[in-house]
Design a binder for these strands. Structure first.
Lengths: 258, 258
DNA sequence: AAGAGAAATACTCGATATGAGGATTACTAC
DNA sequence: GTAGTAATCCTCATATCGAGTATTTCTCTT
């Protein structure tokens, strides 16, 4: 690394060796009361046949796009989710992964994103994918998990899950997993699925209604009771709060993480 | 974007147009009770003469480095902070900024990092910088702020500040701004500087001692009382908690952010 | 050397939030 | 109908918080 090269590089970065930038997406939804992540089966090496997060290269010169746009495009391309469905999907940046050896081809830096949506349909495998499908995260995180994800995607998925779990506590994010209108028990089911913990129905109900701006009543109720009985529940929609205060804390979290 | 090119690009990303990756660092420290950010004055175009966050290109092929290492290197190179000083500095990833037009030279994606340290010395301007210095953030955030930062660095700085303020609430991060041993009032001064709010001394004291694992007593006290009087304070060091529970909440935060 | 002022620490009290459990009531399934 | 389930509401003991006060030990000034 001579200083002449350094100087040129500072002035025109093309003098450095090439780096590629990808976006990967941890997409989460709840299906049949279980938290699922979207995975594709790779059709091309490296890691052909392995399961991986949907993602791909960011378009640079031609059709330049911002990172969130690239993430939305990859999500759509590789899974067949259409613009209409993407409309109700929450998308945010998760973090960037750049260990030198994370991809055997070359230096690839991946900007991971996190997406949440209400019960989404089965995807269609896109260009680069042999298959695409929703997979219960419990299957992936279990001790003897069978599917080993490609690259460092297991780590990215774990980080995404922890982010999602944490954000349920202090943001109204849970409503991104429900339909436009929802009942308090449905909202509770979201928390229980994502946290994988049972919550006290009465206390949860009281808490949700007492946090300003979390939900607002529609004045309506469901048409029928629950499938196993019980009265009709009142319907709510998301309120205008962007942060929940006081937060809705996870019960367990082994007291503190030390 | 023909599909042939897409195929090649998927297989070998070098077929896409070049993208460069930089790291930028929002470094914060407290000097004379005031929160300061580290800025350099650019010596080269673009934005020559403007102030900016320290940062630079990630080394790819030769001397490949992980992103946090690149951030630490840039911090050291551009400011003359030595390894010894960096030892006590907390460094974490902040986020990645990739708008297509954020740099006039070419498509540059910047992985921003956040660094905190105890009262750090004045930096030495490095290779690429005409000057380098600590600047009170109040000067930069004030309505009629004079120094307009280069690129999108004002946004990155603002995001870093908000991250720092938020993390003081639920992590023991404040101890990264103090010396190895500190008093409760010193810790309170950190919170007050970063949050720019006055805290109730008695309640803060009670709270800090009641959160498990936040601080542990050394059994010692300061040699002298405060400069304006008062008894000697007991000394503490950071405990083993990685999360504070219950959190130490900012008083104001205009109730909730809507 | 004494007195004033400041600050570290501790304590009190009312308001609020939380966890656990119970009570009531409206549904579904058989 | 009857049993079982679940939505909603309520109670109560405990924990936490904001605000204010008290005590004590310093430094600084005169």
């Amino acid at each position: 690394m001579g200083s002449e090269q350094d100087f040129l590089a500072a002035y025109d970065p093309r003098h450095y060796d090439p780096v590629a930038v990808t976006v990967d997406v941890v997409a989460l939804t709840i299906r049949d009361g279980v938290l699922n992540a979207l995975l594709i089966q790779r059709g091309q090496p490296p890691y052909a046949g392995h399961w991986a997060l949907p993602g791909g290269f960011v378009r640079a010169a031609d059709g330049e796009e911002d990172l969130p746009d690239a993430a939305a495009r990859e999500l759509a391309e590789e899974t067949g989710l259409t613009a209409g469905l993407l409309g109700r999907v929450h998308l945010e940046q998760l973090g960037t992964y750049g260990k030198p050896d994370r991809d055997p081809r070359m230096r690839i830096i991946s900007v991971a994103h996190l997406a949440f949506g209400p019960e989404l349909p089965d995807p269609q495998a896109g260009s680069d994918a042999a298959q695409a499908g929703w997979t219960p995260v419990a299957q992936l995180q279990a001790p003897g998990a069978t599917r080993k994800l490609a690259f460092d995607h297991a780590r990215i998925l774990a980080d995404g899950l922890e982010r999602a779990r944490a954000k349920l506590e202090y943001t109204p994010l849970a409503t991104a997993f429900t339909g436009e209108e929802f009942t308090i028990p449905e909202l509770r089911a979201v928390y229980e699925s994502v946290w994988d913990e049972e919550l006290h129905a009465g206390n949860f109900h009281r808490k949700v209604l007492s946090v300003p701006g979390f939900v607002e009543s529609t004045g309506e109720t469901t048409e029928r009771g629950g499938r196993r009985g019980g009265p009709r529940a009142k319907l709510y929609r998301a309120g205008d709060a962007r942060l929940l205060h006081p937060a809705i804390l996870r019960p367990s979290r082994e007291d503190d993480v030390r």
